[in-house]
Computed example of a mutant assay.
Amino acid sequence: MTVINYIKESFDELKNNVTWPTWADAQKLMVTVAVFSILFSLATWGVDTVFTKLIGLYFDLIG
């Protein structure tokens, strides 16, 4: 199988066999991804802040 043949078959697969979401569904999914991305980044920031303070306290105690 050549690379050109592979690309043609991949394009055909995407064009004919994949069910694409409607525009409204895509918008809902985008909002869901954005919300969870923001929540995950806030959770990561919170954990990072807590560990930074804990490590600072630990070094204050031993130093």
Rank of each mutant, 00 (worst) to 15 (best):
M1Q: 08
V3I: 15
V3H: 12
V3E: 15
V3N: 14
Y6C: 10
Y6D: 12
Y6Q: 14
K8M: 09
E9C: 02
E9R: 13
S10Q: 15
S10C: 13
S10M: 15
S10E: 15
F11L: 15
F11R: 07
D12L: 11
L14D: 06
K15V: 05
K15F: 09
N16E: 10
N17Y: 05
N17P: 00
N17I: 00
V18F: 03
V18H: 03
V18P: 00
T19A: 05
T19R: 07
T19L: 04
W20P: 01
W20Q: 04
P21A: 03
P21G: 08
T22W: 01
W23Q: 12
A24R: 13
D25H: 06
D25V: 12
Q27D: 05
K28W: 02
K28N: 14
L29A: 10
L29C: 06
L29S: 11
M30Y: 10
M30S: 14
V31I: 15
T32V: 03
V33M: 13
V33C: 04
A34Y: 09
A34R: 08
A34W: 09
V35C: 04
F36P: 00
F36Q: 06
S37K: 02
S37V: 05
I38S: 10
L39R: 01
L39I: 09
F40G: 12
S41H: 04
S41R: 04
S41D: 07
L42M: 12
L42E: 02
L42H: 01
A43V: 10
A43R: 02
A43T: 08
T44Q: 06
T44H: 04
T44K: 07
W45R: 02
W45F: 15
W45T: 06
G46R: 05
G46T: 12
G46F: 11
V47N: 01
T49A: 13
T49I: 01
V50H: 02
F51M: 09
F51D: 03
K53D: 06
K53T: 04
L54C: 07
L54E: 09
I55G: 00
I55H: 03
G56C: 01
Y58I: 07
Y58G: 01
F59Y: 11
D60R: 13
L61Q: 09
L61D: 10
I62D: 03
I62M: 07
G63W: 02
